[in-house]
């Protein structure tokens, strides 16, 4: 028995030696960044590009991990659960804190267990139709929907996503009679649009921009706040007189109560990253446009968005549990 114990000890010690830790001020060890979407998506790509720049600034590795699933809530809850020493942070999307917690119970309080360190990149969305669709402007399309009540279908990337809610709210404000078809993610929604199985979808521009350039997909209306660089002629919702838009940023969150010094350092590092020329150039190739926003400002924005959408959920036909 003794021999078993000692040989076991030997193995453990050998392995433990590999994980020694150095001592210094913050950041004294690598920082873990939990990306709440799968590897290879737009969020992941942008986050990794900025993390590698932030690594240079902080002079300490920012290690990316993917924790995808359940609308981004899995990754966010992992951050909320982590120790608030500033060595675990994560990416976050708007619904994971402002919408989903109002639809179903999640194991974190979105505004108490988490703080927004900074917002890095607005997602850009649009209402899209097939390239050979008969409508060239938003007005044409709306006129068609009104003439053909109950015939038009719109696809979203899932129930309760901003894509669904915004499109449903447009329908409600304009009193349109159209049907919602939720798909499992943007890829399947785009495939259904290209195949002509749904008439219109709401999706991120970055994921379809190649098809837009090739003329296979047309954008009718930009639902995010600003016009999109690749389609400068397409109007935004605001220009069409809507009082709301589809706002969601990729932000960096940390568990509540992390040291102020750490929060500031992370925020500053990512500010440098988001404004770095190299990062802007590489994200630009994918039509992603980073834009830094201070954490406190974004937190206030999120709280108002949560109120704005929360009241509408039931009306828009989302089952609230």
């Amino acid at each position: 028995m003794k021999r078993i114990f000692f040989s076991m000890l030997g193995v453990v010690l050998t392995l433990a030696l590999c994980t020694s830790v150095m001592a210094a001020d913050y950041p004294k060890k690598p920082i873990k960044l939990i990306i709440n979407f799968s590897a290879g998506g737009t969020t992941d790509t942008a986050a990794r590009l900025m993390a590698s720049k932030a690594t240079e600034v902080l002079n300490q590795a920012v290690i990316c991990m993917n924790k995808k699933g359940a609308g981004g809530t899995l990754g966010v809850s992992e951050v909320a659960r982590a120790r608030n020493d500033g060595y675990t942070i994560g990416t976050c999307n708007m619904p994971a804190v402002a919408i989903i917690p109002q639809i179903r119970e999640v194991p974190y309080k979105p505004f108490e267990d988490l703080i927004q360190v900074c917002a890095l990149m607005p997602y850009e969305y649009a209402i899209l139709v097939r390239g050979d669709a008969p409508w060239n402007t938003w007005e044409d399309f709306i006129a068609y929907v009104k003439e053909n009540p109950g015939k038009v279908t719109y696809g979203s990337v899932g129930t309760g996503t901003t894509n669904h809610l915004v499109t449903a709210r447009i329908g409600k404000e304009l009193d349109l009679d159209w049907r919602h078809v939720p798909f499992q993610g943007g890829v399947k929604a785009t495939a259904a649009l290209l195949g002509g199985h749904v008439d219109v979808i709401n999706n991120t521009m970055a994921s379809v921009v190649s098809s837009v350039r090739a003329g296979k997909i047309k954008a009718l209306l930009i639902t995010s706040e600003n016009r999109f660089s690749a389609t400068p002629d397409v109007p935004t919702m605001k220009e069409k007189g809507f009082g709301f838009s589809q706002i969601s940023y990729m932000s960096v969150v940390a568990p509540a109560g992390i040291p102020e010094e750490a929060r500031k350092m992370i925020s500053d590092a990512f500010k440098v990253a988001a404004e770095d020329k190299g990062v802007i150039k590489s994200t630009g190739k994918l039509d992603l446009h980073p834009k830094f926003m201070d954490g406190k400002e974004y937190q206030t924005l999120l709280e108002s968005l949560a109120k704005e959408w929360g009241g509408l959920l039931k009306e828009l036909g989302v089952k609230v549990q």
Binding site: I4, V11, V12, L15
Partner: peptide, 14 residues
């Protein structure tokens, strides 16, 4: 992972 796996491997071999 490392510590637990090492112990478990010893126990499994046993």
């Amino acid at each position: 992972f490392l510590l637990t796996s090492a112990i478990v491997m010893f126990v499994l071999f046993w």
